[in-house]
């Protein structure tokens, strides 16, 4: 620690300057929405005039009928999380433990929905869902959101299961446990942290997923992002501030989820296992 230099090289100043510039602008982007949502009037000044108010929040709550929208958001996300964990975890287990013909092909199949942009498969998917009468209501939104979520659970859970020692399962089998028992009494307790992390990430993704929900939602099955989009693209009819208030509610919801998520997952470990530099 004694060797820490106070005077940094020009390169370091440049890099830190760029980071600070990015953060300042990010703060400006978020801050201007927050300030605007609490201001009475804000036209051509640094800060809003006429004092601070919370009336835009109650106005947004009534005008955009946020209670049903929030209920739908909650229902959709919980259903998506539940179903994708139920479908994804067993599949991840087999992919992690077994080698069988066609394994790589199957893995690629699960990778595709994550690699393709939602709009490309969203439009054909929405057409199919409309054809069978699923789209325009809650079930269609849930089904569409499951498409990237199930592969996401599989891809995050596979490395997690790989690191559990298979000797534990073998020992259980030697003691006479069947597959169901191995799953429920051995694996499930060990998998809880991984499932929790995957669930929270799926939750964050589903609450923030715009395209798929937008393409399949009917008037009664909009989630918060989609309602926010509609209120923004119809701007001019309603006060800008109540749209801002709604955006702030959306952000704070996402932030709460994010803080919870970060208690369980280290962001840099989402993509690769990070080897901390132990020698320093």
């Amino acid at each position: 620690m004694s060797g820490r230099r106070i005077v940094a090289s020009p390169g370091a100043w440049l890099v830190w300057g760029a980071v600070v510039f990015f953060f300042v602008n990010l703060a400006g982007v978020i801050g201007s929405v927050v300030v605007s949502s609490f201001g009475t009037r804000w036209f051509d000044t640094w800060l809003p005039e006429g004092g601070w108010t919370t009336k835009w929040y109650s106005q947004a709550w009534d005008e955009f009928t946020l209670l049903p929208v929030l209920t739908v958001t909650l229902e959709v996300s919980l259903l998506v999380v539940g179903v994708s964990v139920l479908i994804g975890v067993p599949a991840a287990y087999v992919l992690a433990r077994r080698s069988f013909p066609g394994r790589r092909l199957l893995y690629l199949l699960f990778l595709l929905p994550i690699l393709m942009p939602p709009i490309t498969y969203g439009i054909p998917l929405a057409t199919v869902l409309y054809k069978y009468g699923f789209a325009g209501n809650l079930s269609g939104v849930v089904l569409a959101n499951l498409v990237p979520s199930v592969p996401f659970v599989i891809l995050t859970m596979t490395p997690f299961i790989e690191q559990i020692d298979p000797a534990i399962e073998r020992a259980a089998r030697m003691c006479g446990a069947g597959t169901t028992q191995v799953f429920l009494r051995i694996l499930a307790p060990l998998l809880v942290p991984g499932i929790l992390a995957a669930s929270i990430l799926v939750l964050v993704r589903t609450v923030g997923m715009f395209e798929l929900t937008f393409l399949t939602a009917g008037p009664d099955s909009q989630t918060l992002v989609v309602a926010l989009y509609y209120s923004m693209s119809a701007a001019g009819i309603r006060a800008q501030q109540s749209v801002d208030a709604m955006a702030v509610m959306y952000t704070s919801m996402m932030l709460v989820l994010l803080v919870v998520a970060l208690r369980f997952v280290n962001p840099t470990q989402l993509v690769a296992r990070v080897k901390e530099d132990v020698s320093e």
Binding site: L228, A247, T251
Partner: peptide, 14 residues
């Protein structure tokens, strides 16, 4: 996590 919609609203204001 902000998503594109909120970022858009923020950019319009900022």
């Amino acid at each position: 996590t902000l998503g594109t919609v909120l970022t858009a609203q923020g950019l319009l204001n900022f």
